[in-house]
Amino acid sequence: MTIDIDRIDQIIDMHQCEASSLIQVLLEIQGENHWLPKEALDRVSEKLQVPLSRTMHIASFYKAFSLVPKGRHEVHICMGTACHVRGAKRILETVEDLTGIKPGETDADMKFSLETVNCLGCCALGPVMEINGKAHGKISVSETAAVLERYE
């Protein structure tokens, strides 16, 4: 776990230990740590007085939360209709080959996490690969490797 308990307590205190702020607290921890470790969920449940079963229910329900560690760079590949017809599948296969991981997985050096998304909202740029929030539009299979190499 990289985020420490003190920081988690700070986030919880900013929300006055309100049980109704559960999702907001989890979102902030997720934002800083990129995933929710068990220790964090235990601490949040204890301080907000929400049963762990409920915290788990919520943390596992929303796709915004991750219960497994994420790599340093989060790669999202758009599989929406517009990107699909422009060859998103080939981009995905290329990224899978280059990183050796499937959607939902993280590589062993914790460098990349790969996810597919259903639409990034910039269909004119399709096919789109988004890395750490930066969109790489109209990307071709040959460019994919060069883009990935820019990330350490």
Partner: peptide
């Protein structure tokens, strides 16, 4: 007791 809950969706 909250020993059992739902996970995922």
């Amino acid at each position: 007791l909250n020993a059992v809950g739902f996970v995922d969706r």
